[in-house]
Design a protein around this nucleic acid. Structure first.
Length: 449
DNA sequence: ATCGGCTCGCGCAA
DNA sequence: TGCGCGAAGCCGAT
């Protein structure tokens, strides 16, 4: 593994004791650089290795839908790790309290965690850091090119970020080593406690948004979806990705969001697939450049989920058009209930509510119409992020924040001809959608869900 | 079907 | 200081 993936969060005092990987964003037992680094430390010191996940009861308003997908995936992680003599502990509570307590109780010698640019995760790590004395490392197991290496600043657009990735991609896109059994058993084993899915009934969750039956959670299912896409979808991807009727997208984003599969595994599979160089290029642009640009945005911009995070030209133009007349106005509840005059928008909203996933092209259209139909750009952004985080399996992800800001706040985009309400933010309408795909067929498809 | 204009600012060449 | 060009478009002219 390239050592640039590792950042020392705290030098700490070296002492003998097991190595603990505090798993957070990258919820998988293989293809995980943070786990691999933790194991290499443990092997070097000849000590046990354990993995802990801290279950927060109310993570940014997450729902049964998202907790169900996550906890069922974690149960698979537990099984896979235990087969390799690595215990998995599912704690419940605030990481700032629970991780330092676990470290003390089990006499942990070194602590490793994975990388996440979101501010709540950074705040947790800061508290943990202040409450432990041992060495504490962070490994970017989510990005092919680690976010701290990719760029030292907030990038202006994909075109400024792309060359930074291309320069070093070959160095970082290396293969994952095979998992190995850990030779040193964890001794004073804390009581294992209930499994993840068993805890679902007792968690204080929003149960109005139920689990989705059509997408099976976990690493095995995610790897299956990847295999299926590479075999049956990748070749046609450039032509079908913007057609929500054909559904030419990879369906991998929920697995990627919860870290159940590694983006790097996806990139490796695509790179060696027997398809045209063009198809590979188009998909790698999505899976590497665009996805990692979202991490760059959230890492380098404190205001990644508010209009303050939008570029200055965009904030100005939206402000200049603040008082423009809005021909349609909807309240949050009307939007949430898919009760607008626009059947395409309603269908997109219904697809998200029912399936936990909205097609990529429609996400842009959907968010831009919220800007057009609500009182202020700030309100529009709050509603878009709120609905996305409530219903999408991949809510609360850097990609979601960057996507909403792209649609509403001109992020990573350029100026376009001036329109009412939008100013020079790129405008979209259903005529454009009709040029691209059979809108009525899509509406019928959603109605039959 | 295809094309140009719309419009802004970064990054690089000079 | 000038210039090319960009994350998924729209619209009207041809």
């Amino acid at each position: 593994m390239r050592e640039e993936r590792v950042r020392v969060l705290k030098v700490g005092e070296e002492k003998r004791g097991p190595v603990l990987y505090w798993m957070s964003r990258d919820q998988r037992a293989s293809d995980n650089w943070a786990l691999l680094f933790a194991q290499s430390l443990a092997l070097e010191k000849k000590v046990p290795l354990g993995v802990v996940f801290c279950l927060v009861e109310d993570f940014l308003g997450a729902t049964l839908r998202q907790y169900g997908f996550m906890l069922r995936g974690l149960d698979e992680v537990k099984t896979s790790l235990e087969e390799r003599n690595i215990p998995f502990f599912l704690l419940q509570g605030t990481p700032g309290t629970e991780i330092p307590r676990f470290v003390r109780e089990e006499n942990v010698g070194s602590l490793v965690t994975d990388f996440d640019p979101l501010r709540i995760k950074r705040a947790w790590k800061k508290t943990v850091m202040e409450n432990v004395t041992l060495p504490f490392y962070e490994v970017d197991a989510h990005n092919v090119v680690p976010a701290f290496i990719a760029s030292p600043k907030e990038e202006y657009a994909a075109r400024t970020f792309r060359p930074r990735i291309s320069r070093v991609l070959d160095e970082f896109l290396d293969g994952f080593p095979d998992p190995v059994n850990h030779p040193f058993p964890w001794r004073r084993k804390k009581a294992a406690g209930e499994g993840g899915a068993e805890r679902l009934p007792s968690l204080p969750l929003d149960r109005t948004v139920g689990e989705v039956p059509w997408l099976r959670p976990g690493t095995a299912a995610g790897m299956g979806a990847l295999e299926d896409f590479v075999r049956n979808g990748l070749a046609a991807y450039p032509g079908s990705r913007n057609d929500p009727v054909r559904d030419g997208q990879s369906q991998l984003s929920p697995y990627l969001h919860f870290g159940q599969i590694a983006p790097q595994r996806v990139a490796l599979a695509v790179r060696s697939a027997p398809v045209s160089p063009e198809a590979k290029k188009v998909f790698l642009e999505e899976i590497v450049v665009r996805r990692e640009l979202s991490d760059n945005f959230c890492l380098r911009n404190e205001d990644y989920d508010s209009l303050e995070g939008a570029p200055a030209w965009a904030r100005k133009t939206l402000h200049d058009h603040r008082r423009d007349r809005r021909p349609y106005r909807y309240r949050t509840e009307e939007l949430e209930g898919a009760e607008t005059h626009d059947p395409l928008w309603n269908a997109a909203q219904m697809e998200m509510v029912k399936r936990g996933k909205m097609h990529g092209y429609l996400r842009m259209y959907w968010a831009k119409k919220i800007l057009e139909w609500t009182g202020t750009p700030e309100e529009a952004l709050d509603i878009a992020i709120g609905l996305n985080d409530k219903y999408e399996l991949d809510g609360r992800d850097p990609n979601g924040y960057a996507g909403c800001l792209w649609s509403i706040g001109g992020l990573h985009d350029r100026a376009w001809p001036v329109r009412p309400v939008f100013g020079s933010i790129r405008y979209m309408n259903d005529r454009g959608a009709r040029r691209k795909f059979d809108v009525d067929a899509y509406i019928r498809k959603v109605a039959s869900l």
